[in-house]
Amino acid sequence: MIDVRRLRVLRAVADHGTVTAAADAMHLTPSAVSQQVRALGRDLGVELLVPQGRGIRLTSEGQVLLEHADAMEERWERALTDLAAHAEGRTGVLRIVAYPTAVSALAAPVAARLRARAPRLSVEIGEVDGTPAYEALLAGRADIAVAVPPPDGPPADDRRFDQRPLLREPLDLFVPAGHPLQGRAQVRLDEAAGEEWIASKDECHQAWIVQSACSAAGFTPHYAHRVSDWTGVLALVGSGLGVTLGPRMLSLPEDGGVVRVRLEGASAPYRSVFTVVRRGAAERPAVSQGRRLLEEVAADLGV
C-alpha cells in the first residue's frame, strides 16, 4: 500500500530541489522527509533520489512515480470532494415512494428541484400505496415515503419509523357537470347523501376514506360502482353515473365533464399526509433535504 502523504513529500522534494527546502515547505524536519522518501522507495523496491551537486534529483523511476502521483493526488482530492458532497446530501441516491396523486403533485416537483440544486444526487421515484410503502422503507427500497396512514398500517408510536405530518389535504366532492350542487358557495357533505357513489378499489384506500367521511357526516353512501383507479372513477363521474370524494391534489380531466365542489362545515373531510422514514435516517443529509423540499412543495400547493 502506498501512503499518499509520502507521495506529497516526494513531490515537495522534486519541486524544491533539496531535502531541507522540502522540509521547510512541509513544516517537517529534514530527517523526517528523508525517512518518508526512503520508506516509499522500500515499499516500491526502487531508488527514488540520487545526489546532484549540493542538491538531489529524482531517478527515472522517481519521475515515473511522480507522474502517477499527480494523477493519484487528483483522484484522491476528487474522492474527498465526493465524500464531502455525499455527507452534505449532494451525491448518492435518494429513493422516494408515494401514492399516485402524491407522485405527480409532490414527488415529481421535489425531484425536479433536487436535480437543479444537487445535480449529482440521483433521485428515484416509485409509486407505492398503503402498507407496502412502509414495507419498502424497511426493506431498504425507499428512503422517504409520502403516505396517508392506512387502517392496517403501523401505529404512530411504531419505533421502526419516523413519521412527520406533511399536510392536511381537503377532500372535495366530484360531481358531473351541471349537477345541482355545482356553483354553490357552501356545500355540506351530507347534501350528497342521496347520490349514487363511485369508489376506487385501490387508490390510497379511497373507499375507506369515503366511508369514514360519510359516516362522520351522518350517512352511509350507496355505492353504485367500484373501479380500480382514478381514471375509471372520473370517467364514471363525467358520464353522470354518480359522485365521489377525491383529494384536492387530484387533477381533473380537461374536458370539463367533472366538477370539483369544495365542502364546508364541521364534517368537511380531509386526509392527513405524512412523510415517513426509517428511524434514525432523518438526519442523513439527502433524506433531510428531500423531506425539507417535500415540505416546501406542499406549502406551495396551498391546499
Score class of each variant (00 low, 15 high):
T91I: 05
P100G: 14
L40S: 07
R291Y: 09
R291A: 03
V97M: 05
P155H: 11
V123T: 13
R284N: 11
R11K: 11
G89S: 12
S251C: 12
R260Q: 15
R75P: 00
L106E: 03
P155Y: 08
S200Y: 03
V297H: 04
Q211G: 15
P51L: 12
Q186T: 09
L293H: 09
L263S: 08
D82T: 08
D82N: 09
W76L: 01
I56R: 15
R159H: 06
E191K: 01
A286N: 10
F274Y: 04
F274M: 07
A177P: 09
F219P: 06
D157R: 05
R248F: 03
R141F: 03
F274E: 07
R42I: 05
Y134F: 15
G92V: 03
S31F: 12
A207Y: 08
V210P: 01
A71S: 07
V287P: 03
D24K: 02
L80C: 02
E73K: 14
R278S: 02
V50I: 13
P247V: 04
D3K: 14
A118F: 01
A266W: 00
A32R: 07
A298Y: 08
L167V: 09
L10D: 06
L138M: 13
R95H: 05
L138W: 13
L121G: 12
S212A: 06
S215L: 08
L294Y: 04
G265K: 04
Q63M: 12
P155S: 10
K201A: 12
L234G: 01
E77G: 10
R54P: 04
R291V: 14
I125T: 14
Y270V: 14
S272G: 10
R113C: 06
P100K: 00
R260G: 11
A32F: 04
R54N: 05
E77C: 10
R184F: 13
T20L: 04
C204Y: 01
L137G: 05
W197R: 00
G240A: 10
H205T: 10
F174T: 00
A282S: 10
P253D: 01
A266N: 07
T59F: 07
G256C: 14
A235S: 12
L49H: 03
A268Q: 05
G153P: 03
V233D: 02
T231E: 09
L236Q: 00
D255E: 07
G140H: 06
R113F: 01
A111Y: 07
Q211I: 08
H179K: 05
A32M: 01
